[in-house]
Design a protein around this nucleic acid. Structure first.
Lengths: 208, 208
DNA sequence: AATTTATTAGTACATTTGGACTAAATTACG
DNA sequence: CGTAATTTAGTCCAAATGTACTAATAAATT
């Protein structure tokens, strides 16, 4: 991608993070990087297109994480890695989750895409947990659909921790690790003694 | 409060829920109820004031719930009651949680107030859990601050489940119970056998 | 009844925004 | 070198919004 397009996307991201998507106009983005608004429109015809491209950057980063952890044979550790790295990305693009609903309200294709990604993500956790039950890191379900519930719960946490941190934390940036730990602790009650030992080991390894 | 003010607040709530706070103008609210926009401004000088009043309605409803459950001597049941009733209120005022961050970004006093309420809410859960540990409904902590983590986790869930439901559910209204159940299931791994029996009994009692 | 106060509506204005259109400048390339 | 495509900037327009101001009407008070 040409330099100018990246420059526009970077500035858009910065302004969206600072002021919220709806409070930033095409004109303001253009002004900030010193080009005319018609020029910006030439590259991205509207805000939705900017958002679509920025979302693509998020997806690319997510794919890269999945690629990295596919080499990790320790399943629990792979969850730690993807959490820590994923949470950094979410913070970097926090405007996207903070304005999640209004963005999707105005971009139906993106909304559809998000739903598909969610199904994929659900499946990912399902597989990982099944594997870890097999490895006797996680215990078996004590009631039906217990892990289905867990996955639904952590979906909301991972989607909205960054919004919550903006509201309640004085320095949201420095609380990324705090929320990553809080996320991972969702799994803690389901660990076998063996799994719990690994978990504690990983907590200190990742400095959480 | 006079009829006209309530009418304005009701219409504002409806439009905010439907279109998102930032997509609704003072003029549109006035138009919908057939008064002039200057008239609306006479009653509420800007959108922030509308939001402050609507938030007060939420608080009043929350206080009413707390008053009701204070009579309930079964602690776990009181949690069920406040969850089911509270989730209905959140749905009724869903715009508030969906646009939580942008609302608080533009209303510093409200932001401050929300932080204080959060501290109060944290304390409430702390007390309830301590009581239920005492009643041998909840088990003791197996690691330090385990319940502090739990309370932080459920805070995010209860703040953002309605946002998530708007994104992923076809009929958000009919999924209120689903999310109430999902919320309550956060407590499930921490229940004693006795507590678990009560929990299952309450699930069916509340049709969750 | 007279006067004050509360409520409602109308108008005018400056600003912002997205979008269309044109034209100039730069780059690519045959 | 010259031509076409790409990139950039400037201008104009219509719609929407918040805000201020004025005037009219209704309600309350003395």
């Amino acid at each position: 991608m040409e330099n100018i397009k990246l420059k526009i996307l970077d500035q858009a991201k910065k302004l969206f993070n600072d002021k919220g998507v709806s409070n930033v106009s095409i004109r303001e983005i253009a002004r900030e990087i010193g080009i005319s608004h018609s020029n910006l429109i030439y590259h991205f015809k509207d805000k939705n297109l900017l958002l679509t491209h920025l979302h693509q950057q998020i997806l690319d980063a997510a794919v890269e994480i999945n690629r990295e952890i596919s080499k990790e044979e320790n399943t629990l550790k792979s969850v730690f890695i993807s959490t820590v790295k994923g949470f950094k990305i979410i913070y970097d693009f926090r405007f996207f989750m903070i304005d999640f609903n209004s963005i999707l309200l105005e971009n139906k294709e993106l909304h559809q895409q998000i739903k598909e990604i969610e199904a994929f993500r659900y499946n990912l956790y399902e597989v990982k947990i099944a594997k870890m039950i097999d490895e006797e890191i996680f215990r078996n379900e004590v009631y039906k659909n217990e892990y289905a519930d867990l996955i639904s719960q952590i979906r909301i946490f991972s989607d909205y921790w960054v919004s919550s941190s903006q509201v309640y934390e004085q320095y949201p940036q420095s609380s990324i690790k705090k929320y990553a730990r809080l996320f991972l602790c969702h799994f803690r009650p389901f660990l076998t003694p063996k799994g719990h030992k690994m978990f504690i080991q990983l907590l200190s390894e990742f400095e959480l």
